[in-house]
């Protein structure tokens, strides 16, 4: 495949960036999107140019490190996958592919396509955990959890914190991420104990970091590589509002 790539280049957080055009030829449709970028970077390095910075780590859809807004979609045009799981066969020969970094005030660009997502870590640090004295390993059957509850909790726990939700949201809202964390713990007896405190602390941190309000458009859910449902946002709203009303 021969492709024209329109890629955002930006030296650092302080400079203004711009799109550069790259033509790349003889790309196999069977390689991954990130491998295609590796090939381009290899060419750039060999011709003495600065390679394109982009985030990646596991390359198997579990770490949440890869990002990229590809042709208008977070993680590219395919659904239910991360950018590292995207293949070139999803594109057409001769196509122009526009690659942009996540754009959100709370995710400032560090370089080229790499953005700073520490704001998500800070939200987690504010309450996305269970504080317990661990002690010995308890008996697995000591705390019964119903199948629907454990399923819902695990569905929410599938969130890899990649940032696609806030990157997609027209309001730059992190609600889907926060909701997934709050929901997965609220559905389990171990996490429920601190449910009220957690919901309040995480929402407060999210607001403080400059994420937007939720307009319930559902765009986050549509672009989420893990199909996290906005039903978790409803649960977050419930948890938060009932916690506040009990204060």
């Amino acid at each position: 495949m021969n492709l024209k790539l329109k890629i955002w280049r930006q030296a650092n957080a302080k400079t203004t960036g711009k799109f550069d055009i790259y033509n790349i030829d003889n790309i196999s449709p069977d390689i991954s999107f990130l491998e295609m970028l590796d090939i381009l970077n290899n060419d750039l390095i060999h011709s003495g140019k600065e390679p394109i910075a982009f985030d990646h780590d596991c390359r198997e859809g579990i770490c949440g490190m890869c990002s990229l807004h590809i042709n208008g979609h977070a993680h590219g045009p395919d659904s239910e996958i991360t950018t590292c799981q995207l293949h070139m066969r999803k594109f057409n020969d001769g196509e122009t592919i526009t690659i942009e970094p996540w754009r959100s005030t709370a995710f400032p660009v560090i370089k080229d396509l790499v953005v700073d997502r520490t704001s998500y870590d800070k939200i987690l640090q504010a309450g996305g955990f269970v504080s317990v004295n661990t002690g010995g390993v308890p008996d697995a059957n000591a705390i019964p959890i119903s199948k629907p509850d454990s399923d819902e909790s695990m569905d929410a726990a599938a969130c890899i914190g990649c940032g696609a939700c806030a990157a997609t949201c027209k309001n730059g809202s992190a609600m889907l991420f926060v909701a997934a964390r709050v929901s997965s713990l609220a559905k389990l007896p171990q996490g429920k104990v601190e449910g009220a405190r957690r919901a309040k602390a995480m929402v407060a941190k999210m607001d403080e970091l400059g994420f937007g309000n939720c307009s319930n458009t559902g765009a986050c859910e549509a672009e989420c590589p893990k199909l996290i449902s906005i039903g978790h946002i409803a649960r977050l709203n419930r948890e938060f509002l009932s916690a506040k009303l009990q204060d």
Partner: peptide, 27 residues
């Protein structure tokens, strides 16, 4: 607040995400 959170730098390419109603984005 939402516009500020989105930031001054907008995407060059945007799409209509699947299942997202026009109204919801233009209230």
């Amino acid at each position: 607040q939402n516009r500020k959170a989105r930031g001054a730098q907008r995407y060059a390419v945007t799409v209509k995400e699947e299942g997202v109603a026009w109204s919801s984005k233009n209230m």
